[in-house]
Amino acid sequence: MKKTLDAIFNMGLPARDIKNANYVNLWIFIWVVSMLGSIGLIEIGREAQWSYFSALALSTIALHTLIGVIMVFVYKRFLSALDEMERSVQLNALAATVGVVFVGFSSYSILEKAAFLPYLKFEYILMAMSLTYSLGLIIGRVRLQ
């Protein structure tokens, strides 16, 4: 149990890595807020039939995408400067995430076409990726303790 808790909270990283991780978390937060804000604005604009709806929709999507690109670069910089064992854990978790998404959702899409499963929502993919990534981090850290 202690091993798992240590793996989740990952205490003991150098101060540089904690500072970079907080910076990544800040950009993730901004990205999520921009996503929710964009969706909200677009829904309100569409219902109210604003005359400038198209321009507003394109601007919010462009801003959200720009924030997303910055977030990816901040994460890449965090990964490059990260403690080398933690970097290895992160890369393994990312590999597992890509694998699960490719294999899991190719099978899902076939089953969906065969009408065995409901329509695949993008949110399911995001949730599966987040879950696999988090589990990958915990398992990787526990293994190396």
Binding site: G12, P14, D83, E84, M85, Q145
Partner: peptide
């Protein structure tokens, strides 16, 4: 922790190297 601080890595990294679970770069 002292060694980790000298090498600018985490204490966990030193622990894993000592146990032979992780090979350093």
């Amino acid at each position: 922790a002292d060694l980790a601080s000298e090498l600018e890595v985490s204490r966990q990294t030193i622990n894993a190297i000592e146990k032979g679970k992780f090979d350093p770069s």
